[in-house]
Amino acid sequence: MTQIVTIRRARPDDAPFAVPLIQETIGHIGLVLTGAATDAEAEGVMTEFFARPGNRLSFQNVWIAQRSGEALGLLLGYAGADSGALDEPFREHLRGRNLPSDFLSEGLPGEWYLDTLAVTEAARGHGVGARLLQEAAAQASANGLERVGLLVEHGNRAARLYEREGFSVEGKRTLSGHVYDHMIRPAQNTAQ
């Protein structure tokens, strides 16, 4: 009998699980946001931000997928219209280090922006990502938004999961020198 994957809101003490998984997933973007030269340095900065409210990587914007109390993956997201305000603490951090702070915010108005979807290696291929995408749709609906949006680097295998879950490419966006497909789906998925 397969145990059910449940979703819960993250807490500040989830940082040791969440932060490395976020950085592993967002890579270059994490370095840009934090002004770090290495993943380890980025994780240190992200750990501080994770515990604080009011920024894009705050625990307040994270949901944890778990089975029998074991964390399996996470979803990080927020209303796209809030992207600029949620990025401002990172811009302030970069200005304080005399680093460029002119990066583009990712989310767009009118969508619930799925910033990061990450599943542990051991849990991949077992429906955890699909369950987290269902939670993203539920959050969009709960926030009065009719669609979920995300960015995925062209060629990323995760795009197949997104397509199976009803996402389609709406356009391309370039962030920090990398090209991403902007994918959207209705909050109420009609593809299933």
Rank of each mutant, 00 (worst) to 15 (best):
F50N: 07
A10K: 07
R131T: 12
Q192Y: 07
Q139L: 15
W112G: 02
S105W: 08
Q188R: 15
A122I: 04
P20Q: 02
R157S: 11
G80W: 10
E106I: 01
H182F: 15
I7M: 14
I64D: 11
V152S: 14
Y113M: 09
A42K: 10
S101I: 02
E165Y: 03
E170Q: 14
S105R: 09
E165D: 07
A118W: 02
G84W: 05
N98F: 10
A187V: 04
Q66D: 14
A79E: 15
E146V: 05
A136G: 08
R185T: 13
K172L: 13
E88H: 06
T34V: 03
A136K: 11
L108R: 12
H154T: 13
L33H: 13
F49T: 03
S141N: 05
A118I: 08
L161F: 04
Q23E: 15
F59Q: 06
A65V: 09
A191H: 10
A42V: 01
V169T: 15
F103K: 11
Q188N: 10
R91P: 03
W63M: 06
H126W: 02
I64A: 01
E92W: 02
L175P: 02
Y162V: 06
L31V: 07
N61A: 07
G107P: 10
H28Q: 13
I4K: 14
N55E: 05
G80N: 10
H28E: 14
G84T: 11
V119W: 00
